[in-house]
Amino acid sequence: MSNVYVISDHHFGHTNIIDFESRPFRDADEMTETMIEKWNAVVTKDDKVIHLGDFSFLNKDKTANIVSRLNGYKTLILGNHDRGRSRSWWLDAGFDEVSENPIVYNGFYFLSHEPMYMNKHMPYVNVHGHIHGQKYEGKQYINVSVEQWDYTPISFEQIKAMVIPSEEQ
């Protein structure tokens, strides 16, 4: 049985993100290798990963090389830094699926790059990235930017456990 993971905001090849977000890497190459290792430490070839955007700042060949090294079936929801490239560019770079819009997952989770407005009376949860080291208050928002999860994809089982108390699962 395969697992489903989510993560966002790798910013592969973006040297300045190391300073902007106080990432613990000497340079972009160390950041790339560490993030690939952390991904493959939890994701198997049979798993699925939904990446919530801002994947790579590199050219298509370098991006494709990284995508090919990552385990799992990979879906990309375009982030603000990804939208300058076409859907077909990302598919050519190796993603299995690419969405230009948020995805509703299991009828309950809104998966998006940027946080979405969630009225406190809405019964849904917004799983998002974009805000890196920041967090929105409340259980309706789960930030899956790499800075929040030690640069490692988080499983939907973990997300579900955060949202629904264990006696209700």
Rank of each mutant, 00 (worst) to 15 (best):
N71T: 11
L52W: 01
M31T: 07
Q169E: 12
Y5Q: 14
T152S: 13
Q169V: 08
T63K: 03
H128G: 06
E30M: 06
Y5W: 15
L78G: 02
D29H: 07
I154K: 00
G107Y: 02
P102C: 07
V163K: 10
I17F: 05
I154L: 04
V43E: 11
H10A: 07
P165N: 13
I36E: 07
D27S: 04
D92I: 03
D150C: 06
L91K: 09
A93R: 06
H11E: 03
I142S: 07
A28T: 03
D46N: 11
K160E: 14
T32V: 08
M162W: 12
D47A: 13
V98Q: 05
S112L: 01
P24G: 09
I154Q: 04
Q148R: 15
Q158F: 05
D92V: 05
I18Y: 04
H132D: 14
L70F: 00
E97M: 12
Y141D: 08
R87Q: 05
G79T: 02
V49P: 07
T34V: 14
N106P: 00
E37L: 03
R69L: 09
N126G: 05
E30W: 01
F95N: 14
I18P: 02
M122C: 05
D92H: 02
I66W: 02
W149Y: 12
H132I: 06
T32H: 05
V49S: 04
L70A: 01
H11A: 02
N16E: 06
H81Y: 00
I50V: 14
T75N: 01
F20E: 01
G107T: 09
H128E: 03
L52P: 01
S88C: 01
G79Q: 08
K120V: 02
I7F: 13
A41L: 12
Q169H: 06
M116C: 07
R83K: 09
D46I: 00
S86R: 07
F95C: 09
T32Y: 02
V125K: 13
E147S: 03
I164P: 09
L70D: 01
M35C: 15
E21V: 02
E157I: 05
